[in-house]
Design a protein around this nucleic acid. Structure first.
Lengths: 191, 191
DNA sequence: GTCTATAAATGGATAGAC
DNA sequence: GTCTATCCATTTATAGAC
């Protein structure tokens, strides 16, 4: 693996674990196993390296979410697949985590990948729900965009509740509650 | 206002804005307008002061949430009052924010107020929903505990989505979607 | 109780040898 | 390209004067 690649991956891990403020260039270098000079040769500095790492993480998350949402089954089943997919809940969301970092949200460049990723996610879930309505699987009264935001929020908020409790149970409960509510919108004919 | 009080309030503000890692004793002192010695006279150090600040913030949040949830109206109306209450959405939740801070969740003492606060919140919402069921306002099939976790998660996740977008719209959409789903559980007789 | 002075460690980055 | 050495500010805390 190239030095650049090792630096990016170390940064991805550290940003996830400690956030932007909590991640020092020194820690990145140590984890990557490279010297100080290498980092400043390949990247302009901490924020430049963070940008590369955040973009990479956002892209990966997008792909893994899309695998659930574009899979087979009804709209309800695809949303359920997304909500129930395996997660290391107590680690939290690597992208959602960045929204709590002042330096990240205040930098248009660093915030952009977060905005893009969550915007895409809400849009994709809304598409799945709208498709379910067209197929007659879901109640026509459902607002696809609002419901999509709710689904995305349940996941992000579930992480918060789980980390506060140091227990995955609140995450699972939040997902279960959301799915039960959504199930009540599934039309009898399609159920 | 006493020196102690000024220190606690400055810490509350800074923890909200910058998180635990991002908050230095120096910044606290400057905002409080006191010297270095005062802080170490009244508090053992940064974490001790943070503990006082987090406890205070959690207590305040509990009171303000309870004001909505214990108000007048049907169960749906009380949950709606909580979800729709005025918030400075882009600032995020001062308690939820702490769950993204490694040093906080790894310290049993610092995490305890978060756990207590969110545990209480989920329990209180569940009580309101269960009461609604007993009164015949809400469908009996609803799982109060799971739905309560969903409601709490929607708020916390809504903050995340809003901060990523630098726009309150995703928060409002998530709340609207959750309320629409919950409204479908309101029994016709009580609607 | 409150202040300033000081200290040891870390943060983020630059210089320059190889 | 990669490394070590160096730099200055900040972090967290202690010491001790007032």
């Amino acid at each position: 693996m190239s030095t650049q690649e090792r630096l990016v991956r170390s940064t991805q891990e550290l940003l996830w674990e400690r956030g932007y403020v909590g991640t020092s260039p020194k820690a990145i270098l140590e984890r990557a196993g490279v010297g100080q000079g290498s980092m400043y040769h390949h990247f302009a500095g901490k924020s430049d390296l963070a940008l590369a790492a955040i973009r990479r993480t956002a892209e990966t998350m997008k792909e893994s979410a899309d695998a659930c949402l574009s899979g087979p089954g009804t709209a309800y089943e695809r949303v359920a697949a997304y909500l129930l997919r395996e997660r290391r809940v107590l680690r939290g969301c690597p992208i959602g985590r960045m929204t709590q970092d002042r330096d990240v949200v205040q930098s248009p460049e660093l915030r952009q990948p977060l905005d893009e990723m969550f915007g895409w996610l809400r849009g994709r879930i809304a598409e799945v729900l709208a498709e379910g309505q067209r197929r007659g699987e879901l109640a026509a009264a459902l607002d696809p965009a609002a419901t999509a935001a709710t689904v995305a929020a349940v996941v992000q908020g579930g992480y918060v509740l789980a980390r506060a409790a140091d227990d995955t149970a609140p995450f699972d409960a939040a997902v279960r509650g959301a799915l039960a509510l959504l199930a009540s919108q599934v039309t009898p004919a399609a159920g």
